[in-house]
């Protein structure tokens, strides 16, 4: 009976030990993962490693702001349109870089750049095309204004 009891107890002990080991292992793995995730998302201030997409996000934000301001000044709308398009490309590229690296430190700046660039493209297109009409206008220009 004793042997049987021992036999019965031993597997339980092993099970408990195994469970404990697994728990410890899982905890340390989780801790490691969280640490990595934390480090990726919030690197130490003054870290020598560059934040992915931060430069592009900053440039996109600056271009978005300039385009929103410039688009109200007549033919400067052309420059605003070009700047807003460049801002759009840069902010999308920055967001994709962040997505690929898992580091979202400059996400706010990239989003602001994207939104301002979208506003810049829309407004400058509306203001710029105020001077334009669709394809058939060419006949009216040729017939009525110049010849």
């Amino acid at each position: 009976m004793d042997n049987n009891n021992n036999d019965n107890q031993n597997p339980n002990q092993y099970q408990n030990q195994n469970q404990y080991q697994y728990q410890n292992q899982n905890q340390s793995q989780n801790q490691y993962q969280y640490q990595n995730q934390y480090q990726n998302q919030y690197p130490n201030p003054g870290s020598p490693y560059p934040v992915p997409g931060k430069g592009k996000a900053t440039a996109a934000l600056v271009m978005g702001i300039i385009s929103v301001v410039l688009c109200w000044f007549g033919y400067f709308a052309i420059a605003a349109l070009i700047l807003a398009i460049v801002g759009l490309v840069l902010s999308v590229s920055a967001k994709k870089e962040m997505q690929a690296s898992g580091n979202f430190m400059a996400r706010g700046m990239a989003t602001a750049g994207l939104v301002l660039s979208i506003i810049g493209v829309s407004l400058s297109a509306i203001v710029f095309i105020s001077f334009l009409v669709c394809v058939s206008s060419i006949s009216s220009i040729v017939n009525y204004n110049w010849f």
């Binding site: 001077f131 334009l132 009409v133 669709c134 394809v135 058939s136 206008s137 060419i138 220009i141 040729v142 204004n145 110049w146 010849f147």
Partner: peptide, 19 residues
């Protein structure tokens, strides 16, 4: 011929729309 004499026409033509 007319465009070469009045380059402003070219600007007006390119100010047209999109296809």
């Amino acid at each position: 011929q007319m465009i070469s004499e009045h380059p402003a026409i070219l600007k007006a033509l390119f100010n047209g729309g999109f296809v």
